[in-house]
Amino acid sequence: MKSQAVTLAQSVVVGGVKWQLYPADFKTIEGTFSVYLYALNREHAAAILLELKETAVLRDGDLVGITRND
């Protein structure tokens, strides 16, 4: 299986608003892993993370590619 690195910008501007990248760590029996999300500030990132914890579901199928949308 060929792996590909993904590079994320530290911040992005969308509609004139700056979004910062925030890491979130989670622990499983396999170890500690990280996900990254964009938010307006740390409090916003915490709110997004809470919403993810309450509503996230795994999509059907495997990831077949990554496309930039900028």
Results as ranks from 00 to 15, higher is better:
Met1Lys: 10
Met1Ile: 12
Met1Phe: 14
Met1Leu: 08
Lys2Leu: 14
Gln4Ala: 12
Gln4Arg: 06
Gln4Met: 05
Ala5Pro: 14
Val6Asp: 05
Val6Leu: 14
Thr7Met: 13
Leu8Arg: 01
Leu8Asp: 07
Leu8Trp: 07
Gln10Ser: 09
Gln10Pro: 10
Ser11Lys: 05
Ser11Val: 04
Ser11Glu: 10
Ser11Cys: 06
Val12Asp: 02
Val12Ala: 03
Val13Gly: 01
Val13Glu: 11
Val14Ala: 01
Val14Asn: 01
Gly15Ser: 04
Gly15Gln: 03
Gly15Leu: 01
Gly16His: 02
Val17Ala: 05
Val17Arg: 08
Val17Asp: 02
Val17Ile: 09
Lys18Leu: 06
Trp19Met: 07
Gln20Leu: 10
Gln20Ile: 00
Gln20Asp: 10
Leu21Asp: 03
Tyr22Trp: 07
Pro23Ser: 02
Pro23Leu: 00
Ala24Arg: 08
Ala24Met: 02
Asp25Trp: 06
Asp25Ile: 00
Asp25Thr: 05
Phe26Leu: 01
Lys27Leu: 04
Lys27Thr: 13
Lys27Asp: 09
Thr28Gly: 02
Thr28Val: 06
Ile29Gln: 11
Ile29Arg: 09
Glu30Leu: 07
Glu30Asp: 07
Gly31Asn: 05
Phe33Ser: 01
Phe33Gln: 00
Phe33Val: 02
Ser34Gln: 03
Val35Cys: 07
Val35Trp: 05
Tyr36Ile: 00
Tyr36Ser: 00
Tyr36Ala: 00
Leu37Glu: 10
Leu37Gly: 10
Leu37Thr: 05
Leu37Arg: 03
Tyr38His: 06
Tyr38Glu: 07
Ala39Asn: 06
Leu40Val: 04
Asn41Thr: 04
Arg42Ser: 15
Arg42Cys: 09
Glu43His: 08
Glu43Met: 11
His44Leu: 05
His44Ile: 04
Ala45Asn: 03
Ala46Pro: 06
Ala46Tyr: 06
Ala46Trp: 00
Ala46Leu: 13
Ala47Pro: 10
Ala47Phe: 09
Ala47Asp: 14
Ala47His: 12
Ile48Ser: 13
Ile48Cys: 15
Ile48Arg: 10
Ile48Val: 14
Leu50Gly: 11
Leu52Ala: 12
Lys53Ala: 13
Glu54Pro: 02
Glu54Met: 15
Ala56Lys: 10
Ala56Phe: 14
Val57Met: 15
Leu58Gly: 10
Leu58Thr: 13
Arg59Val: 13
Arg59Cys: 13
Gly61Val: 08
Asp62Lys: 15
Asp62Val: 13
Asp62Ile: 12
Asp62Met: 13
Val64Ser: 11
Val64Cys: 08
Val64Gly: 12
Ile66Ser: 02
Thr67Arg: 09
Arg68Ser: 15
Arg68Asn: 15
Arg68Thr: 14
Asn69Ala: 12
Asn69Asp: 11
